[in-house]
Lab assay of single mutants.
Amino acid sequence: QWKVGDKCSAIWSEDGCIYPATIASIDFKRETCVVVYTGYGNREEQNLSDLLSPICE
């Protein structure tokens, strides 16, 4: 189960590419979260089910 502060990978809606991110907040009722893309600072809402394991850098 994901928690705030977890590192993950998420698909950015603008280009469909996968980027490393950190979970900033979680809404368990809606099963969504807000991620912050590492190195970019962009925030975006994602479905918890769409999150991927962190990418090894």
Rank of each mutant, 00 (worst) to 15 (best):
Q1L: 00
Q1Y: 11
Q1V: 00
Q1M: 12
Q1H: 11
W2V: 15
W2S: 15
W2D: 15
W2A: 15
W2M: 14
W2F: 11
K3E: 14
K3V: 13
K3R: 11
K3D: 14
K3Q: 14
K3F: 13
V4E: 14
V4G: 11
V4S: 09
V4K: 02
G5L: 02
G5A: 04
G5S: 03
G5P: 02
D6G: 00
D6A: 00
K7T: 11
K7A: 12
K7S: 12
K7R: 11
K7E: 13
C8V: 15
C8G: 00
C8A: 01
C8W: 02
C8S: 00
C8Y: 00
C8K: 00
S9I: 10
S9V: 08
S9A: 13
A10L: 09
A10E: 07
A10R: 01
I11H: 01
I11F: 07
I11P: 01
I11C: 01
I11E: 04
W12A: 03
W12M: 04
W12F: 10
W12V: 06
W12Q: 05
E14V: 15
E14Q: 13
E14F: 15
E14M: 14
E14S: 06
D15M: 09
D15G: 06
D15F: 10
D15K: 07
D15P: 01
G16E: 02
G16Y: 08
G16A: 04
G16T: 06
G16P: 07
G16K: 05
G16D: 05
G16L: 08
C17K: 15
C17V: 01
C17Q: 15
C17Y: 03
C17F: 09
C17W: 01
I18R: 12
I18M: 07
I18S: 01
Y19D: 04
Y19H: 04
Y19A: 01
Y19F: 07
Y19P: 07
Y19R: 02
P20W: 11
P20T: 08
P20L: 12
P20C: 15
P20Y: 11
P20I: 11
P20K: 03
P20M: 12
A21Y: 01
A21R: 06
A21K: 03
A21G: 04
A21I: 11
A21S: 04
T22S: 03
T22H: 03
T22I: 14
T22N: 04
I23P: 04
I23Q: 03
I23V: 04
I23E: 01
I23K: 03
I23G: 05
I23C: 00
A24L: 15
A24K: 03
A24F: 14
A24H: 13
A24P: 02
S25V: 10
S25C: 08
S25Q: 06
S25L: 10
I26E: 04
I26V: 04
I26T: 02
I26G: 02
I26N: 04
I26S: 01
I26D: 05
D27I: 05
D27C: 07
D27P: 00
D27V: 01
F28P: 12
F28A: 12
F28V: 11
K29T: 12
K29N: 12
K29V: 14
K29I: 13
K29L: 13
R30F: 11
R30H: 10
E31C: 07
E31D: 11
E31Y: 07
E31H: 09
E31P: 03
E31S: 11
E31N: 13
E31M: 14
E31A: 13
T32C: 02
T32R: 03
T32L: 06
C33E: 00
C33S: 00
C33T: 00
C33H: 00
C33A: 15
V34H: 01
V34Y: 03
V34Q: 01
V34N: 04
V34G: 01
V35N: 02
V35Y: 03
V35E: 02
V35R: 00
V35T: 04
V35K: 01
V36Y: 05
V36A: 02
Y37V: 05
T38V: 10
T38L: 11
T38R: 03
T38W: 11
T38S: 08
T38M: 11
G39W: 14
G39E: 09
G39Y: 14
G39L: 09
G39S: 04
G39D: 10
G39I: 11
G39C: 12
Y40K: 12
Y40F: 14
Y40L: 15
Y40E: 06
Y40A: 07
Y40D: 07
Y40C: 14
G41Q: 05
G41K: 03
G41F: 04
G41I: 04
G41E: 08
G41D: 06
G41C: 07
N42Y: 14
N42E: 06
N42H: 14
N42Q: 10
N42S: 12
R43Q: 14
R43C: 13
R43E: 13
R43K: 10
R43A: 13
E44K: 03
E44P: 07
E44R: 03
E44D: 07
E44Y: 06
Q46T: 04
Q46R: 06
Q46D: 04
Q46C: 05
Q46A: 04
Q46M: 08
N47M: 08
N47G: 01
L48R: 03
L48F: 05
L48N: 06
L48T: 02
L48P: 05
S49C: 08
S49H: 08
S49T: 09
S49Y: 08
S49P: 05
S49I: 11
D50R: 02
D50S: 05
D50P: 03
D50I: 08
D50K: 05
D50G: 06
L51T: 01
L52E: 03
L52W: 04
L52R: 07
L52A: 03
S53R: 13
P54Y: 09
P54A: 09
P54H: 08
P54V: 08
P54F: 09
P54K: 08
P54T: 07
I55D: 13
I55P: 08
I55T: 09
I55L: 13
I55M: 14
C56E: 15
C56N: 13
C56W: 14
E57Y: 12
E57F: 12
E57A: 15
E57L: 11
E57T: 15
E57Q: 10
E57C: 13
